[in-house]
Design a protein around this nucleic acid. Sequence first.
DNA 1: TAAATTGATTGTAATATTACGATAAAGTTA
DNA 2: TAACTTTATCGTAATATTACAATCAATTTA
Lengths: 109, 109
Amino acid sequence: MGATKTEKFTEEQNTIASFAKVLGHPARVAILQHLFKINSCVCGDLVNEIGLAQPTISQHLKELKNLGLIKGNVEGTSVCYCIDTDNWTKMKEIILKFLDQDVTKNTCC
Amino acid sequence: MGATKTEKFTEEQNTIASFAKVLGHPARVAILQHLFKINSCVCGDLVNEIGLAQPTISQHLKELKNLGLIKGNVEGTSVCYCIDTDNWTKMKEIILKFLDQDVTKNTCC
DNA sequence: TAAATTGATTGTAATATTACGATAAAGTTA
DNA sequence: TAACTTTATCGTAATATTACAATCAATTTA
């Protein structure tokens, strides 16, 4: 009990859910928005930008990295993060296909 | 500790995250896909369609209803669920706006 | 009205997530 | 090399989520 029963669902359903899940925390949304806004790499200023502790940000970055949405380059003592544009586009297409189902056919309710 | 620090984020970030979060479980993805597929209301066959217990499905339906993505009509002893097309469209626009950020500008990494 | 059907609610166990202090690891600078 | 800077990892507490058995509530049917 307690754990999601992944085996009951299709691969597509699990993929959609795992992308949606990683976007399902405001800190990760904020991180991604910031990475888009500055149009280049970011280093440690995410901790200042968002008001969470450094280990917490690091943990969120790891989850985004695990799904391939961002990548990080070590630059001296700091790490430069940015959007992985290829994977972002792939993710976008998967989510879009799901969201774009025809909504007009529903006649009851 | 443990709880998401909602107050640290903008309303937009929290809205995006809460929509993404509700899509972040394969059972809810499966429910929504089924509601789209049959192009009309569904009653209790979601429990058969997806292999989870009835209270579990009921709980997932409640979460989808709380965010306004589906609505339910009582029809005798059964309840007819379907997509709330207006709210689905609104949600889609919010998520799309977030996903559609220009990905080409990133030059480093 | 009694039995049956359907779905919601309650209670709870198992697991996952979030957040952060402490500390480690790796590079940089004095 | 010692001190400093930056980020990752470990450990853990607090909270949230997932799943389901048991039960309740409402309607329908025999």
